[in-house]
Structures are given as structure tokens and as C-alpha cells.
Amino acid sequence: MVLIRRFEERTEEQYTRARIGGYCHLAIGEEAATVGAVDPLGDHDYLFASYRDHGTALAVGSDPGAVMAELFGKAAGVAGGYGGSMHLLDVERRFLGGWGIVGGQLPIAAGAALALDYTGSDGAVLCQFGDGATNTGAFHEALNLAAVWNLPIIFQITNNLYGMGTSVAMASGETELWKRAAAYEMHGERVDGNDVLAVHEATTRLLTMARRDRRPSLLETCTYRWRGHSVADAGKVYRSADEIAEWRTRDPIARFEHQAIEAGTLDVGDVSELRREVDATVTEAIKFAAAAATPTVANLYDNVYGDPGTAAQFARMDTAGPFGERRETRGWRT
């Protein structure tokens, strides 16, 4: 959580220095909802996320340098500089992506759960998305499919109270979003998303339910994003300063720090040491990203198709094609 917080603070700073382009959605304030849910995942479990995915990538254990390099648009990035902030992934850790269309990853995550079921795997899928996604058709179709097919999946709503600037109250007929599970005879529950231990406990329990009982579930983790929707949004015109200030008093990191020190699992020295280490890690990640090479233009057409036979197929499309295509044929991998 400390790593995510620091990474995001420095990401914001790097964005203002124009070293990061495009959209950039920060997860500051939502660390517990992310970490508490990702941490219980096992070796056979898969993870999907929305475009607010920096924290997810770090929580799953992706190298912070490779994540920052992706934000910088470098070839050493987790997606080779083709994906950017919204499309992080880590196939080795079974994190199959940050996805950019609100709600779009839900049916895909259901399909991953279908594949686990099909192959007899004992794994499950955790699919994270925001409150805004619960009003899309994809949300309802995915939940229904998961229920009808008994898929091993947890749908996790990271409810930060706003889809861009539209509040849950303005957007949803039922503002207790977990209750929507009932429409699919699915287990639903709501936990304090700023309490990492509560999220951890709930996710662990729901993972067992998914893996062992083949029962999907809907987990609502209530939290708050301290920053705007993206770096381009100050986040102040659609919510009050008082509201933001109040939520900042519920800082998930300070809360866990307090819990851990009370319990004697950490002392103040440990916390300071951790913060120093995290600072160094993030600084190192930025240095790595800044020094990394940009993708070469010769690779512009890489990976548009993944089939080895594609180059031969497309070679016959070359004749008199538009300029881009002629380049394309030469650049395709064989």
C-alpha cells in the first residue's frame, strides 16, 4: 500500500513533467481495496482490472520499473510501450490486464473463469472495476453468465463514490451496489474498502467459495479516490472540500499502520524503514524508466496479429495499398 501511494504520487509528478502521456488514473486512497483483494490470490488465480490499474500491477508484484517504463512509453515497459497507463498486464503473474472501456473486462473475466472451469483448474478469477461499471450492460451480462454457468469468479466493485464526476447516487437506482447480486441469485456483500484486513478476509472467503463451491460473488469495497478521475481532473467541482477532507482522515495506510503497531507486528522504526525503502524503489523505477529506450518505429506493426502465418497472409494485400499498409507488410513478424 505504501508502495502504491508513493508510486502514484511520483507518477503524478512525472505526468506534470510531461514524461507520461495520455490518460492517467491514480489510485491514491484506494490502496486497501486493491491490496486486500489481490494479496489472497494463489498460483492458479487470474486477475483483471479497469484502467485504474497501477496499484493492481504493483499489488500483484510486477516490477515497479517495468510499470513506470510502460507509463513512460518505453520498450522495457510491461506491454512494450504499446499499452500505457490503462493497459498494464503481467502474464506470468496471471494479471490479464487493465482495460479501458468501462465494464468491458467483466465478460472477458467471466470467459477466463469459464476457461478455468473447462480445463478443470482449481483457480478462480478476481475481476476489479469501479462503481460506474455497474451501470453497463456488460456488468449485468457477465454476472448473469457467471451465475448460469457457476463460474469461479469474484466481481469486485471498487466503489469510490464517483464515476468520473457522477456520484453513485445520481447514477444508480440501488446505491448499495452489492445488492445487485441478488438479481442473479449470487452472493453479494459490502466491506469497508479502506480496511485492508476486512477486504483480505472477505476476498479469502469468497475465493474459497469460488474455487470449492463453484459459486461466483459480488464484493463491494467502499473507498474513495483522493485525486480526480484522472490527472486532468482536479476532482473538486463535483464534490466538496469537506467531503475530501473527511475521507482523508480515513486513510487506509494510516489505519493499517495503527492496527499493525497496536498488534505489535510492526514498530515505528519498521514503518520508517519501509517508507525509506519504498522511496528508493520508486526513485529507482523512475530512473530506470527515464533511461530506458523508446520503442523503435520499425516495430510499429508488431503484434497487431499474433499468428505466425499472418505475414504470408497479408503479403498479398500489399499491392497498391495505402502507405501504412506497405510499411506494415514489411514490419510484420513471421
Binding site: Y46, L114, A115, L145
Partner: peptide, 20 residues
């Protein structure tokens, strides 16, 4: 499948990503 084209085409994408 149910009448859920967005849902089951998406499920096809996810299943394919895992190798089916």
C-alpha cells in the same frame, strides 16, 4: 448461451486469452 451477445463474445475473448 443466454441472449447476451456482449457477454458471451466477451467470454470468448477471455477463454481464448487463457488458451482455449
Amino acid at each position: 448461451t443466454p441472449i447476451s451477445e456482449e457477454g458471451f463474445v466477451g467470454a470468448g475473448v477471455g477463454a481464448a486469452m487463457l488458451g482455449l
